[in-house]
Simulated assay, not measured.
Amino acid sequence: MQWVFLGIAIVAEIIATSALKASDGFTRPMPAALVVLGYGCSFYFLSLTLRTVPLGTAYAMWSGIGIVLISIVGWIMFGQRLDAAAIAGMALIVAGVLVINLLSKTAGH
């Protein structure tokens, strides 16, 4: 169940971060409200994850997967470009998350 909680936390963080961009510096009330709700939900479910998954592992996955997904959202929704260096960096982040989960004894499996 901890992985479901982490997945919900990641999705909520992606929604909140996307809304943060759309809030235009908190000048648009609906996106600003979604930011607060999304981050609240994200941190709540991340806290549930931390009951059984080590802090470093959970945070590496939450932030690493979040970085990649929010970059894709930025590209699709906001027309932001990703150059080769950005894509290579994100590939390294994904590789790091995979190493932690597949090879590390601290991943809490």
Rank of each mutant, 00 (worst) to 15 (best):
Q2G: 04
Q2W: 04
W3K: 06
V4L: 15
F5N: 14
L6K: 04
G7I: 10
G7H: 06
G7S: 05
G7P: 05
I8Y: 11
A9Y: 06
A9R: 07
A9I: 10
A9P: 03
I10P: 05
I10G: 14
I10T: 08
A12G: 02
I14Q: 06
I14A: 12
I14H: 08
I15P: 05
A16T: 10
A16C: 11
T17K: 04
S18H: 04
A19W: 00
A19I: 10
L20N: 00
L20H: 00
L20T: 00
L20A: 01
K21R: 15
S23N: 02
D24T: 00
D24L: 04
F26E: 09
F26D: 00
R28W: 00
P29A: 07
P31E: 08
P31A: 09
A32C: 04
A32E: 00
A33G: 05
A33T: 02
L34N: 00
V35D: 03
V36T: 01
G38C: 02
Y39A: 06
Y39W: 09
C41T: 15
S42G: 13
F43H: 12
Y44H: 09
Y44M: 15
Y44W: 12
Y44E: 13
S47N: 15
L48E: 15
L48I: 10
V53M: 15
P54D: 13
P54H: 14
L55A: 14
L55D: 04
L55N: 04
G56C: 11
G56N: 06
T57S: 13
A58H: 02
A58F: 02
A60T: 14
A60I: 02
A60M: 12
M61C: 15
M61I: 15
G64F: 13
I65E: 02
G66Y: 11
G66S: 05
I67Y: 09
V68T: 12
I70Q: 06
I70N: 10
I72H: 12
G74C: 07
G74E: 13
W75D: 09
W75K: 12
I76N: 11
M77I: 11
M77Y: 09
M77F: 13
F78L: 08
F78G: 11
G79P: 08
G79H: 06
Q80T: 03
R81E: 05
R81S: 13
R81Y: 01
L82M: 15
A84K: 10
A84L: 13
A85F: 02
A86T: 08
A86M: 10
A88E: 03
A88T: 14
A88R: 04
A88Q: 05
G89Y: 06
G89Q: 10
L92S: 00
I93Q: 01
A95T: 13
V99W: 08
I100P: 03
N101Y: 03
L103D: 03
K105P: 04
T106S: 06
A107T: 07
G108E: 00
G108V: 03
G108I: 00
